[in-house]
Design a protein around this nucleic acid. Structure first.
Lengths: 350, 350
DNA sequence: CTGAAAGCGCTTACAG
DNA sequence: CTGAAAGCGCTTACAG
């Protein structure tokens, strides 16, 4: 079962390949009669243009590459969905690759995608990536590249991010507004920029409000991957170390849920004893008890936006226009739920 | 910045394109000296073969298509990971598409992938798919096709599945073994084959053990998508309708966790009052309290296996060997945790 | 050991 | 309105 070619259609109709090609693409200089004839036969033969040949001629693949640290992750899964949905709208296909947080793999994958001659690349960096030659090469080759979520500031390309520092500031400020005086922070691993920025936002909120910054209230995760267990462990440690903490800002919802679980087990009342704010707005957070106050991190929108930006750059590149890198910062929202006590100023606010 | 071509290398070295091509591919009839020379220049120029041209000649794209109902789902995300990892090992890229449970979309996507001339297609059916012309066409065109998880028995292609009926039987049998007499079932939606098979396994276990099958103990979800809320609602209804249920087999972990939550809130003791078995072994299930007894559904392995089978068929197809469809059933395991009480026969079992 | 030539299936500038 | 021809960048059977 070999696929039908233009040549076969041309022979059957006793016309030239050129005319068949033009007819199928609705060139204005082909007669209506011929067009109708060609289209009909193409349809009955179930003709599909050979993409390889088309790509070879047009130098376009209508395909983009996506490199993501982990696929099995609620936030990233949403990003993927956003990218794929938007790409499909514009007639683009998405090749997906998982870097597994490894720089070496990421590098190989960039290479693969360049060989594949995708029209553009979307990437969220592996934690292990500290060198960026592979990305700079993509840019030097003139291939559109957009980073999202886990980015490197020094790489000169467009980026779609949230303002982690500001979001963390908002979260911490909210804890302060409802009356918390001793606020701890579970910051996750030391490395990725997001962790750093969230920590800095937390710290700044304290300072701006005249609260002392106490390093012993910041819990780092040595374990590597942020998880439910980490939340439990940190909660346990916190209860051993301190008896005056009345608020916690936690890096990720899953860790926050682990902490909640531990507090529940130990009979610590949330939010009466301790108020908790998480980060990401995972669907489970609205469903556990108490429901978790958190920062909504718009994964689907981020994916959609990243593709849109890439699409613009692909268009521009095609027209030989130069690309001015753009940094798009998406809004985050504080979602107030049961894990934070009501403001002590409620009455005044009415 | 136009990519380097064989021609440019040939010109620089004053040899023919043919020799360059052969040298790069280590043909035995090229001198060592020439090979070394060509390879070095190719490396310094950062030569990458033009995939479009290669594909056009070889009729292979080294790319497969993947159509999945939902990306943001713990089980499917694991499947995707398994597919992508295995494909990468074999030098294949994966184009991912989400059907959103829509037959119309799925059909379009099959068409897209056929036009893209992927070497094979992996699919898990949309719930909305009841006609299969689009899949039969793929098979008729001689394109390798493998279905996984959500399959249609009548489509004549390879399939990777679990034995839902058997797994459900095992789950229910376990509840019976630990002494449950009135076992309910949350079956989720009516339609997909998996739901039906799990229900049938439940029913058969009851019958085989001489327990009466009581339709009022089977809770159907009208809501469409299985969720935490569904679990809560069904748990509530169950408590209103019956006061003698001592075990529940639940279609999906997320629903089971919703039910657990409701039971916890209402002071129903799990497993003392009611034993619960879920399905899928979502990571949260080992982490909530009580931890959930469940059937482990091997997502990653399913993805890996599905790709392996597809790969075999792609190889066979290339050699013009005919493909004999194969049904691969993966083992499921009952994971015993806290949500089911210990067997009353424990002492005897020592 | 090397290379000229055909051809994969399409698109498009150009001629008529 | 139609078509001959060149060419995208590669692979490979064949000749020398």
């Amino acid at each position: 079962m070999k696929p039908i070619t233009l040549k076969q259609i041309a022979e059957q109709l006793n016309i030239s390949v050129t005319t068949v090609s033009k007819a199928l693409k609705d060139y204005p200089d082909v007669s209506k009669k011929t067009k109708a004839m060609v289209k009909e036969l193409a349809k009955t033969l179930n003709y599909r243009p050979n993409t390889f040949a088309v790509n070879l001629r047009t130098k376009e693949s209508k395909t983009i590459g996506l490199i993501i640290p982990v696929i099995v992750h609620h936030f990233f899964a949403n990003v993927i969905k956003g990218i794929v949905a938007q790409a499909e709208k514009k007639g683009y296909l998405v090749i997906i690759l998982q870097s597994n947080e490894s720089y070496e793999l990421e590098k190989k994958q960039i290479d693969l995608l360049m060989s594949q001659r995708v029209d553009g690349i979307l990437i969220s960096l592996a934690n292990g990536s500290a060198r960026f030659d592979h990305l700079n090469e993509v840019i030097n080759q003139g291939k559109p590249l957009v980073m999202f979520d886990k980015i490197a500031k020094i790489v000169n390309c467009s980026k779609v991010i949230i303002d982690d520092r500001k979001a963390a500031y908002t979260a911490t400020q909210y804890l302060i507004d409802i009356g918390c005086k001793r606020i701890a922070h579970f910051r996750g691993p030391l490395l990725p920029q997001n962790s750093i920025d969230r920590f800095l936002g937390y710290k700044k909120a304290l300072t701006d409000n005249g609260l002392p910054y106490d390093p012993s209230l910041v819990y780092i995760c040595e374990c590597g991957d942020m998880s439910f267990e980490e939340g439990k462990m940190n909660a346990k440690k916190l209860l051993e170390d301190h008896d005056d903490v009345d608020g916690i800002f936690i890096n990720t919802d899953l860790v926050a849920i682990g902490a909640l679980n531990e507090f529940n087990n130990q009979g610590i009342k949330i939010p009466e004893d301790i108020s908790i704010v998480g980060f990401s707005n995972w669907f489970m957070s609205s469903v556990i008890s108490p429901t978790l106050t958190t920062i909504d991190q718009p994964g689907y929108l981020m994916g959609k936006t990243a593709f849109k930006q890439l699409f613009k750059e692909i268009k521009a590149h095609k027209k030989n226009k130069s690309i001015i890198p753009k940094i798009i910062t998406l809004e985050t929202v504080l979602v107030k739920r049961e894990s934070t006590k009501k403001s002590t100023n409620t009455i005044l606010e009415i």
